[in-house]
């Protein structure tokens, strides 16, 4: 039991962790919610921040790592500022997800799993996101983009680029 100094977690994250602490009858229930806190702040499971969080929650670090590797929505390494996840499951494939992926690769000049050189975008494929009726679709960070067409994808990428350029 050492003493950890919190260096990485934001005040907001720490506040949320403390709220979670007493929320469940059994403390360990917070594991996934804690991963969300880390993911929300860093966009991936930042290992040092996770260590800090485990210390605050007084839950063995391994419990978080086990979960982070089981639940696939949490990237375990840094991703682009905009993390693009394309659904590849049947309904989306029937509506062209493979071509959507090819289009994104071409536009972003990266491979599956890659990050653009400016760290702006990263690209992965995921399984069904519960948006099959609006296929093909992709998720960028927290947001769903549905009924995609080439034109719409170009628009979305441009918007994100310019948003980030201004902000």
């Amino acid at each position: 039991m050492g003493t950890t100094v919190n260096k990485l977690l934001s005040e907001k994250s720490i506040k949320e962790l403390n709220r979670l602490k007493g929320l469940y009858p059994v403390r360990k229930s917070v594991v996934l919610m804690v991963l969300h806190v880390i993911y929300d702040q860093f966009g991936y499971i930042q290992p040092e921040a996770l260590k800090e969080a485990a210390g605050i929650m007084e839950i063995p670090l391994i419990d978080f790592h086990q979960a982070a590797s089981f639940y696939t929505m949490f990237p375990r390494e840094a991703v682009g500022k905009y993390h693009i996840q394309v659904c590849r499951t049947l309904s989306c494939e029937l509506r062209g997800s493979q071509e959507l992926v090819a289009f994104l690769k071409e536009k972003l000049e990266i491979d599956m799993g890659g990050i653009t050189s400016d760290s702006m975008f990263s690209l992965t494929e995921v399984e069904c996101l519960g948006s099959c009726g609006t296929a093909p679709m992709m998720q960028i960070n927290d947001t769903y983009y549905e009924n995609l067409t080439r034109a719409r994808v170009e628009q979305i990428l441009d918007d994100l680029r310019s948003k980030s350029g201004n902000g």
């Binding site: 063995p60 670090l61 391994i62 419990d63 790592h65 086990q66 590797s69 089981f70």
Partner: peptide, 9 residues
């Protein structure tokens, strides 16, 4: 103890 675990799925 917490020094061994299961990872991935």
């Amino acid at each position: 103890e917490a020094d061994l675990g299961v990872f991935q799925r």
